[in-house]
C-alpha cells in the first residue's frame, strides 16, 4: 500500500492551515508527525481519513483517488483528537456497536483489543464512569480491533500510564511490517524511538526531519 499526498492545501476562510503538502507513506513503516498545537497535524490527519476535503491537491491510495463523499479509503482506522463514544453504554458495548457496522470481527477480537490496551478489567463499566486515560484506551482499542491496514493515531499516548505506553510501542513495532502507521505526539522521545521517519509541521508547511 502506498499513500501519496500531492500538493494538498487546506484553507478555513482566509486561514491557510496546510500549504502544498507533499508526502508519501508506504507499508512497513511507522511515521511520526511533530509540531506544536495548531500547526496543522490534526487537519492533515482528517484529510487523510477522508473527513476533511482538501482545498487543493489530492490524496492517492495505491494511485487511486477517493471521493470521501462516496467512498472512504479502505481498511483505515483512526483516533483523531478526542474520540466520541456513547456515555450510557459500557466500553465493551461501545466497541461492539462500532464492530457491527462492518460485521468483520467477533467478540474475541474486541476482547483482545481491550486486553491490549489494559482495559479488559474495566470493559463492563459505563463510558461516563471512565477516566480520561480509560477513554483514550477505548479510542485506541477501536483502532486496533479490526486489524486495519492503515492506522492513524493522533496523540495516541496522551493520558496513558507507562506500562500501557510500553506495551503499545512494542505492539506497534510488531505489527508495522504489514501496515502504515501514522502517529502524532508531543513527546519527542516517543516519536524518535518508534518512528522510521518523522515529519515536522510548522504553520502548515511540512519539513522532512529525518
Amino acid at each position: 500500500m502506498k499513500i501519496e499526498i500531492k500538493n494538498v492545501s487546506k484553507k478555513f476562510k482566509n486561514n491557510l492551515v496546510l500549504d502544498k503538502v507533499n508526502l508519501t507513506f508506504t507499508t512497513g513503516h511507522i511515521y511520526g508527525l511533530k509540531g506544536r498545537n495548531g500547526s496543522g497535524k490534526s487537519v492533515f490527519l482528517k484529510i487523510l481519513a477522508g473527513l476533511y476535503i482538501p482545498s487543493e491537491g489530492e490524496v492517492l491510495f495505491d494511485n487511486k483517488k477517493f471521493n470521501p463523499k462516496k467512498e472512504y479509503p479502505p481498511n483505515m482506522r483512526a483516533l483523531i483528537e478526542n474520540p466520541t463514544f456513547f456515555a450510557n453504554m459500557t466500553g465493551y458495548e461501545n466497541l461492539k456497536l462500532l464492530a457491527k457496522i462492518q460485521g468483520k470481527i467477533s467478540d474475541k477480537e474486541i476482547l483482545e483489543a481491550l486486553e491490549l490496551v489494559n482495559l479488559i478489567s474495566e470493559k463492563d463499566k459505563k463510558y461516563n464512569k471512565y477516566s480520561l486515560g480509560m477513554k483514550q484506551k477505548l479510542g485506541i482499542a477501536q483502532v486496533f480491533m479490526e486489524n486495519p491496514e492503515i492506522l492513524i493515531l493522533d496523540e495516541v499516548f496522551n493520558g496513558l500510564e507507562e506500562n500501557t505506553v510500553l506495551k503499545l510501542k512494542d505492539y506497534l513495532k510488531e505489527i508495522k511490517k504489514e501496515k502504515i502507521i501514522i502517529i502524532t505526539s508531543h513527546q519527542k522521545e516517543d516519536l524518535e524511538l518508534l518512528c522510521d521517519k518523522i515529519y515536522f509541521f510548522d504553520n502548515g508547511v511540512v519539513k522532512d526531519e529525518e
Partner: peptide, 21 residues
C-alpha cells in the same frame, strides 16, 4: 450528532452509505 464522528464515519464504505444507514 452522536454518530457524526470519525469512529463511526470511516467504518462505512462511504459517506453515502452512512446516510443510507
Amino acid at each position: 450528532e452522536a454518530t457524526k464522528n470519525s469512529n463511526f464515519l470511516i467504518r462505512y464504505a462511504g459517506y453515502k452509505n452512512y446516510l443510507k444507514d
